[in-house]
Design a protein around this nucleic acid. Structure first.
Length: 352
DNA sequence: AATGCGGGGAG
DNA sequence: CTCCCAGCATT
């Protein structure tokens, strides 16, 4: 065992996290769900989503049997919705190919949609104790500093070096605890800013600390200016209902329900063409800026009151009337949740 | 090898 | 405001 692993495990006994929801009643399924939710998402954000998801889908069979709208509704607000679609698809594959039992072979796990090298290693090491390395954001930061591996981890040669270090330090015994320990170190001491090197169990061998350059690791990606895009979202409202449409599988917010977006048409033409209704009242709200990692989106919300005989939509498979005091038909993107909440409030005011 | 994919927490 | 997080799939 490397000195690094030895000291890390000793530290874990006293300071590691052992009370996270997915650390109770450890099963491959629960660890898998948690690892998918934790991709690019922090622990505190994930916990309530994990608890709700597990309550509704306690095992592979219940998840595989659910429809996609149901699954996405439990993911609504978490982001990266391809994760939920892949999780669902993988559960169905596990049902068929492995009789509902999560596979134990690394290659089989890697072959499931949404699971790559790091997640496969994390699930198998945490749930079964098999010796596999992981390389998530925390581990990249810890190892880049400890070994002074320069450069942005998105570059192949940098990632290759980090994986080699990860493999080299992963011990033969106590693998599950080691995996949790190195993530905990990154999350609690070896943080992105203001790392607590004075309390670090491996500070003695840390090359970045020795050269007083902890802040230089890991290397950052050179960033370009984010473009700004704009869209108009239509909140067509009648009889306490609002029109929603399902987005295509590919692209942003794939498979989620959203508000219709206005293209080149005028509002009146759109309502006539798509809903077969005339506008009775028109109201523009303030622009809502929604920020993605790669662009900003300015949303101009337009509330359209239409004639109350609206029951018709042009394409019933893609559009639906959503009753505001009802449960949503599926997953909703975060800004759509915000706008619909605002609409509910304004409806309540109007009715009081 | 580079890019697309969400949303939020931290500073 | 900026940075980037328990990454993976696609091209």
């Amino acid at each position: 065992m490397t000195d690094f692993a030895q000291r890390l495990l000793e530290w874990f006994d006293d300071h590691g996290r052992k009370d996270l929801p997915w650390q109770q009643e450890v099963t491959a399924y629960r660890v898998w769900v948690s690892e998918i939710m934790l991709q690019q998402t922090q622990v505190q954000t994930v916990i309530p989503y994990f608890n709700r998801f597990i309550e509704r889908f306690p095992n592979v069979a219940t998840l595989a049997a659910a429809n996609q709208d149901d699954v996405l509704s439990y993911w609504s607000g978490l982001g990266y919705y391809a994760r939920a679609r892949n999780l669902h698809k993988a559960a169905q594959q596990i049902s068929v190919a492995y009789d509902g039992k999560f596979p134990r072979l690394f290659e089989d796990v890697m072959a499931l949609p949404g699971i790559g090298r790091s997640t496969a290693g994390a699930v198998l090491s945490l749930a079964t104790g098999q010796r596999h390395a992981i390389l998530d954001g925390n581990v990249k930061r810890v190892l880049a500093r400890y070994e002074a591996i320069a450069g942005w981890p998105g570059k192949t040669p940098v990632a290759t070096d980090l994986w080699l270090a990860a493999e080299r330090h992963t011990p033969e015994a106590r693998v599950a605890e080691y995996t949790q320990a190195i993530m905990d170190l990154g999350a609690t001491l070896c943080t992105r800013s203001k790392p607590a090197c004075s309390r670090c169990p491996v500070s003695e061998g840390c090359e970045a600390l020795r050269t007083d350059s902890v802040g230089d690791y890991p290397g950052r990606k050179q960033r370009t200016a984010k473009p700004l895009r704009t869209t108009t979202m239509i909140m067509a409202s009648a009889n306490g209902q609002v029109c929603l449409e399902r987005r295509p599988e590919a692209g942003i917010w794939g498979g989620l329900w959203s508000l219709p977006e206005l293209g080149e048409d005028s509002i009146d033409d759109w309502c006539d063409k798509e809903l077969g209704s005339a506008v009775t009242e028109l109201l523009s709200w303030d622009i809502l800026r929604h920020s993605f990692s790669h662009y900003d989106l300015d949303i101009l919300p337009i509330v359209v009151r239409i004639e109350p005989h609206a029951g018709k939509v042009a394409d019933a498979g893609v559009r639906t009337w959503y009753r505001l005091d009802d449960a949503p038909p599926g997953g909703l993107a975060a800004p759509v949740i915000k706008l619909i909440d605002q609409l509910k409030k304004s409806e309540n005011v109007a009715n009081n």
